[in-house]
Simulated scan of single mutants.
Amino acid sequence: MTEWDDLADDVDTDDPYAEGTASILEAPRFESPTRPALETLSRDQRELISSWLSGFGSREDLLLWSHEATVATLGQLPPEWHIDRLMSLSELSTLLVVEEERERWVEEDALLSQKRAREWRLAVASRDLVPACQRALRKVRWSAVEYADDDDTDDPTVVDVDDQEAPAMRPGLGEVADRQRWVVTQGLRGFGSLEEIVETWIPTAIHASYGELDEDLAGAFWSERPLREMFTARDDTAAEFFRESFLATEFLPPFNTAVAKVSDRAGEAISGGETTDHSAVEYPSS
């Protein structure tokens, strides 16, 4: 049992703002933000928080969200946080919104109402998710390039935030995220043979983790038949649960480490929707 198991009991059900409905308040939108990388990151983070509050259709959806959270928070949520969410039966029943999925994990009399479950998610977001997003923004706030209109420049740089696909406008981080997402998705599906795992999947995961993956992982698939069968020979509910758990415990932590390190080193670049002034930027000397 975690400290969050008691949060629902602390929620003031008389609070008129705790109605379990989506927010109708929209954040301000700036056509030409001076630091578009921060605007891009902030939008991704707001979407992340919104999807957490809305809940998930399945444990697999939660696992995929956990990887998205790793990227959007630039690795500022520890991997243990995701593992705790994915491995706690009581928390699963509170994070999932499909009734038959919720009922898989706890007895009916221990199941929170949908409204109370959303209030619990709101509490966790307030205490964990939002602070992690704030730490992520702090990591890149001063390295984010500033684009300012210059009256003396005929063709200043104009960045269309809607066209920016990479997290925090860092293509290197976007590439890492895409490669990691492929690894997780393929692992959830399973494989046709051990060769696919050893020849393609594990090497790609090594690349996606910048070498942080456990060095014994490929050998474990060769030597441990039950492990191998869970990924190559079985497609039942128990095997699906095992693959989700294995990805959460063996892959999310090194992926998290890689994202945290790459975010400190990846350069910023504009993708699409731009006109550019390539002259050097000059700053005051004092």
Rank of each mutant, 00 (worst) to 15 (best):
G211H: 11
T237N: 15
S66Y: 03
L129I: 11
E68P: 03
G174L: 12
I270H: 11
I197A: 11
V11Y: 12
V71H: 02
V145R: 10
G187Q: 08
A136T: 01
E195R: 00
M230Q: 13
E39R: 03
I24L: 14
L111K: 04
G190T: 05
V130G: 09
D10M: 08
R138F: 10
R228S: 13
D9P: 02
A136H: 00
I206T: 15
V184F: 13
T200W: 04
D162R: 03
Q134N: 15
E47P: 01
A269H: 14
A125V: 00
P284H: 05
S245K: 10
A123K: 11
L111G: 06
T204H: 05
P254I: 01
V71S: 02
R118W: 01
V98Y: 10
I206A: 08
E119Y: 09
G20Y: 01
L62E: 15
S51C: 02
R121N: 05
M1T: 03
S286I: 00
R135H: 10
R104N: 12
L7T: 06
M1V: 00
G190Y: 10
L63R: 00
F242S: 03
G172R: 03
Y283F: 14
L112K: 12
P36K: 02
A208W: 12
A8R: 04
L122Y: 04
T94Y: 12
G267Q: 14
R104M: 12
A166P: 13
G219R: 08
D235Q: 10
R265H: 10
A8Q: 07
E212H: 09
L86D: 09
S285I: 03
P203V: 00
D152T: 05
S193L: 07
A168L: 07
P33I: 00
E47R: 05
V259E: 11
A177L: 05
W65R: 02
L92P: 06
S143A: 02
F255N: 08
A22R: 06
M230S: 06
S42A: 12
R85K: 11
S286M: 03
E199W: 00
S279M: 13
S245H: 11
D264L: 14
A168S: 11
D214V: 02
V130T: 09
L188R: 03
G187V: 02
Y283H: 14
T237F: 08
Y147A: 03
D154G: 09
D14E: 11
A117F: 10
R118F: 03
T275Q: 15
D214H: 06
F251H: 01
L77P: 06
M169D: 09
R141C: 07
D152W: 13
D151P: 07
K261M: 13
T73Q: 09
D277Y: 02
S286V: 00
G172C: 07
P36G: 08
E229T: 00
V262R: 11
V176D: 15
R46D: 12
T232E: 01
L194A: 09
T13E: 15
V145C: 09
G219M: 04
